[in-house]
Design a binder for these strands. Structure first.
Length: 425
RNA sequence: GGAGAGAUGGCUGAGUGGUCGAAAGCGCUCCCCUGCUAAGGGAGUAAGGGUUAAAAGCCCUUCGAGGGUUCGAAUCCCUCUCUCUCCGCCA
């Protein structure tokens, strides 16, 4: 959520910023609504104050043993007016909140302006895509030749956009997850967490998936409403919900492995083949809670932690800054990391690292105590994949393949594979 | 699933219709005193919001959540959520 004070004072500036995303913010409409809120709230609070004073004086009169009947008559009239005002105020405030919850985060100033992914800007590259000396297969062909990746079975069980893996390939994904968690906890100082996979609406509102992106979520039951998490970002970031951190307890860094569930509504026809875009996939997620003003530095660190995973796996990648139009709803600035896929001969997203500054913190009232003033203030939250396990598996398969279709095990994963050197058909 | 108990400020914990946003204690902050390793005295110490350019001040809201009764609710009524204890069931 954008600071309502900023919206009131600088609605036009906010509209100009959001326009960089291609988002249209009706500043005049908002200000008109805000004007109504103000007059209603001032009047309502005046009436409440009046009522409180009267009630108090009645209490005092009664304590003195006086006749309170005339006082009661005078006060009774107020009730209806107050009630009507309170109801009207509530309506307007709900309308304002709806608007505010629907606004994406402000874009950071250094984010390149653009409309689509074509306007994203490459920041750096690491590693060289190797020439295998033969025509590289994609992970679908590799997996099926190994007999360890079965999309037919998956579709019989669950339909499109699911995968079944067996044997060493299934273990390879687990190895990747363990390796990533170990790297982040041991090398990068993250605290491993285990969190719920089913969450209630307020959690999704907190991170920004609701109310706007309901159709992207898998809803399980209506009563109580439970949603499958689309990313561990949701439960992990909500660990900060309605808490005030001691100043010295920040930064906090959490790492979590969870499955992720996405309806992929609106992406029909995209990546229908293979494991790139699934309804269910595994991911290791990194989340930071930091003091305001330090979040841009934290974003660089966070991105570096995700990169470290790919470097250890010796997978070539590039880092890009998402342009304004491609940056996610809650993010002020996002780096995507794209890994080289030999079978596709292109870079594909494997991690997305975002600085949400106070956008999510405001929605979930996540605060810290300011060491100077002693007053609570909103913290900044960041999240990033470190990294998507399903896609990391694809990257290992395609980049470590041999001419006969076997897959070499990356050096760092061997301990997790019981010393296995390669997966063979 | 059955039976019961509970949810109050950073913590413990009082408060069953009227100066209660809330006693007391602990903790914390500041000041004073004391030459001694610990103690004494005093003051302050919830959050959200409105008003304001901002602050101060003033006002509103909040005692798990949502409704209701009432001039007035932490206190009474209803619904829900969560926690704890016992029984049953269970990975």
């Amino acid at each position: 959520m954008i600071d309502p004070k900023l919206l009131r004072q600088s609605a036009a500036d906010v509209a100009a910023n959001l326009a960089r995303r291609g988002f249209v913010f009706d500043a005049d409409g908002y200000l008109a609504l805000e004007e109504r809120r103000k007059s209603l709230q001032v009047e309502t609070e005046r009436l409440q104050s009046e009522r409180n004073a009267s009630a108090k004086s009645i209490g005092k009169a009664k304590a003195r043993g006086e006749d309170i009947e005339p006082l009661l008559d005078a006060v009774k009239q107020m009730g209806e007016r107050l009630e009507a005002n309170e109801a009207a105020l509530q309506t307007v405030q709900a309308e304002l909140r709806d608007v505010e919850l629907g606004l994406p985060n402000l874009i950071a100033d250094d984010v390149p302006v653009g409309d689509t992914e074509d306007d994203n800007v490459e920041v750096r590259r690491w590693g060289e895509p190797a020439d295998p000396g033969f025509e590289a297969r994609d992970h679908i062909e590799l997996g099926e030749r190994l007999g360890q990746l079965d999309f037919d079975a998956a579709s019989r069980i669950s339909g499109a956009r699911f995968a079944v893996m067996t044997g060493p390939l299934a273990r390879l994904q687990r190895a990747l997850i363990q390796f990533m968690l170990d790297t982040h906890t041991t090398d990068h100082g993250y605290v491993e967490t285990y969190v719920p996979y089913l969450v209630k609406p307020p959690a999704l509102i907190g991170t920004g998936q609701l109310p706007k992106f309901e159709e992207d979520q898998f809803k399980t039951t209506d009563e109580p409403p439970f949603y499958l998490i689309p990313t561990a970002e949701v439960p992990v970031t909500n660990l900060a919900r309605e808490t005030i951190f001691d100043a010295e307890s920040l930064p906090i860094r959490y790492a979590a492995h969870t499955p992720c569930f996405r309806s992929e509504a609106g992406s029909h026809g995209q990546d229908t083949r293979g494991m790139i875009r699934q309804h269910q996939f595994e991911k290791v997620e990194l989340v930071h809670f930091v003091a305001p003003d330090t979040s841009m530095d934290a974003l660089e660190e966070l991105t570096g932690h995700a990169e470290a995973v790919l470097q250890k796996l010796e997978l070539p990648y590039r880092v890009i800054t998402l342009c304004s139009g491609d940056t996610g709803f809650g993010s002020a600035k996002t780096y995507d990391i794209e890994v080289w896929l030999a079978g596709q001969q292109r870079y594909r997203e494997i991690s997305s690292c975002s600085n949400c500054n106070d956008f999510q913190a405001r929605r979930m009232q996540a605060r810290r105590r300011n060491p100077e003033t002693g007053k609570p203030e909103l913290i900044h939250t960041l999240n990033g994949s470190g990294v998507a396990a399903g896609r990391a598996l694809i990257a290992v398969m395609e980049n470590y393949q041999e001419a006969d279709g076997s897959i070499r095990i990356p050096e760092v994963l061997k301990p997790y594979m019981g010393g296995l050197e390669k997966i063979v058909p």
